Simulated assay, not measured.
Amino acid sequence: MSEPSFDFLGLSGKTILIMGVANKKSVAWQIARIVESAGADVIYSVRSESRRESLAKLLGTRKVIVCDVEHQSQIDDLANQLAADDVTIHGLVHSIAFADYPEGIRPFHETTRTQFLQAIDISAYSLTNVCNALKDRFAKDASVVTIGISTTRMASESYGFMAPIKAALESSLAFLTKSFSRFSEVRFNSVAAGLLKTSASAGIPGYVDSYLYAEKVIPRGRAVATTEVANTAAFLLSPRSSGITAQSVVVDAGMSINYFDADVVQAVTDADVN
């Protein structure tokens, strides 16, 4: 006689809203696969009608709502539609980021006001804006998870001006937790991911070289997998992480402890000599 399965994550029957699926390589899609396999009901939010059409084969008959967070009216429409359907949200995944590099990566001090404000609106403020719009839809103990980066203090040129944007996103977690605590127990956390091989990252000038370098620095010799980030996000969405809030959980496979790896240092110093 087989033993009954054990629902470790406790997500069975819960409703999770996932924002930001772009394709099958997306972190958001990997998170969706995990929570669906745990029995959760996932509602997808994508930025455009064309994105919904491109995902038709991947998402099949799943519920998909179009919401471009750059437009307040669409955020309001998302909230109104969920209210009309009487949806209670037990978890929200915010996997949304955008930065415009029309001339490629330039020195940070040349970042324009338009570039910076658009990036912070879409990539950081949207978390606060969406959560405010959905505050009446959240279960009392809902969990909100966003996707950050493993460090916002490293001036990586290949990431352009996004590190300060992600720093603002990370700081928002504490303030959202505090303000929501006045009427709920909603938790806000981030998965601070190391360099990942995604379609979005591949389009950033210089990113591929940084990714290859990361593999040299990471103690185990291989980069962080998207599924590793997704697994951490699924845990943060679950009641199993009920004591964790206003935190950024770093998932970088130890990259940040190994920048002075002897082999890497030797390779650089040898190159300087040559």
Rank of each mutant, 00 (worst) to 15 (best):
S2R: 14
P4G: 06
D7P: 05
D7S: 12
G10E: 04
S12C: 13
G13Y: 08
G13A: 09
G13N: 05
K14C: 08
I16W: 00
L17G: 03
I18M: 02
M19W: 06
K24S: 14
K25Q: 13
R33A: 09
A38W: 06
D41A: 13
V42P: 00
V42Q: 02
I43V: 12
I43H: 00
Y44K: 06
S48I: 08
E49Y: 10
R51Q: 15
R51L: 08
R52Y: 03
S54F: 00
L58R: 04
G60A: 10
C67V: 09
V69L: 12
Q74C: 07
A79V: 06
L82R: 01
A84I: 13
D85F: 09
V87L: 09
H90F: 05
H90G: 09
L92Y: 06
V93W: 04
I96R: 04
A99D: 01
D100T: 02
P102F: 07
F108L: 14
H109F: 10
R113S: 12
F116L: 10
A119T: 04
I122N: 02
A124C: 10
Y125K: 12
S126E: 02
N132V: 11
D136F: 10
K140S: 14
D141Y: 09
G148T: 10
T152S: 10
M154V: 14
A155N: 12
S156P: 04
E157A: 15
S158D: 13
S158Y: 15
S158H: 13
F161W: 08
F161M: 09
I165E: 00
L169Y: 03
E170G: 12
S171N: 11
S172F: 07
L176C: 07
S179Q: 14
F180K: 00
S181W: 06
R187V: 09
F188M: 07
S190T: 11
V191K: 00
A192K: 01
L195Y: 08
A200I: 12
Y211E: 08
Y213W: 13
E215K: 09
E215T: 06
E215D: 11
I218A: 02
I218N: 02
P219M: 07
G221R: 10
R222C: 07
V229N: 01
A230R: 01
A230I: 04
A233W: 04
F235K: 03
R240D: 00
S241G: 07
G243E: 12
G243A: 12
I244P: 02
V249C: 06
D252V: 03
A253S: 15
I257V: 13
N258L: 03
Y259W: 13
F260W: 10
D261L: 04
V264E: 01
V265C: 07
Q266W: 07
A267L: 07
V268L: 15
A271D: 10
D272I: 14
D272T: 11
V273N: 13
N274W: 13
N274S: 15
